[in-house]
Design a protein around this nucleic acid. Structure first.
Lengths: 101, 101
DNA sequence: CCCCATGTATCGGTCAACGATATATGTCGC
DNA sequence: GCGACATATATCGTTGACCGATACATGGGG
């Protein structure tokens, strides 16, 4: 799993968000390091939805503008936890390697 | 930077290695999680060499089989350190998020 | 009145990654 | 002596995530 997809899952980990909200949260989470474009977002959401990691929470229409909220599924949260552990292990190894030289 | 490229840099961080050695070391580092194929390896090495992150250390011929050793350049090591810090920060954030719920 | 922020969505291009494949030698077991 | 496997390098074609550009729509601020 690459960073953009990981950030999307992470942005949804505390509560459901709509597309644009995910974009903003992901940007904040990475401190502006990673900027998701809409193409990345909706493509990834589609794949995540198809895989059962994310699902539509609700649809709202506010002042003529539609908002589609997505939420993590149980499977999605599992995936996020696993991926986090995998990343943590790899980074731990790397730090160890880079330290003793 | 994706995992395969990261693992290649990491595999070269302690000493120069030849292609097949990188493959084995990367497999060991990730505990078999990530298996690099030759296509991935040589493609990535070419890109890394062109970018000045990796360079040819020496060429040996042992028992009719050629061995091409690669090493990290200073720039390559810098990149590896930066990338590790970036990954560490992101994983730290993720753990924090996943904890308080 | 125009720009910007908000909000969703599609399209096409790029490029890393990947599997399959090819070539060659040495070793081990049968 | 033969086949299977590990060692070792390399190429090719495909896939698919990612990304920028673009489109469309509304509301607010300068």
């Amino acid at each position: 799993m690459q960073d953009p997809t990981y950030l999307i899952l992470l942005a949804l980990s505390d509560r459901p968000r709509h597309g644009y909200g995910i974009l903003l949260e992901a940007s904040e989470l990475s401190r502006g390091t990673i900027r998701l474009g809409p193409g990345t977002l909706y493509g990834a959401l589609e794949r995540l939805e198809e895989a059962g990691h994310v699902e539509l929470d609700r649809e709202e229409i506010e002042e003529g503008r539609p908002r589609r909220y997505f939420r993590l599924t149980r499977r999605g949260r599992s995936l996020l936890v696993e991926e986090t552990e995998r990343r943590e292990a790899l980074v731990g190894l790397a730090k160890q390697r880079l330290a003793h030289r």
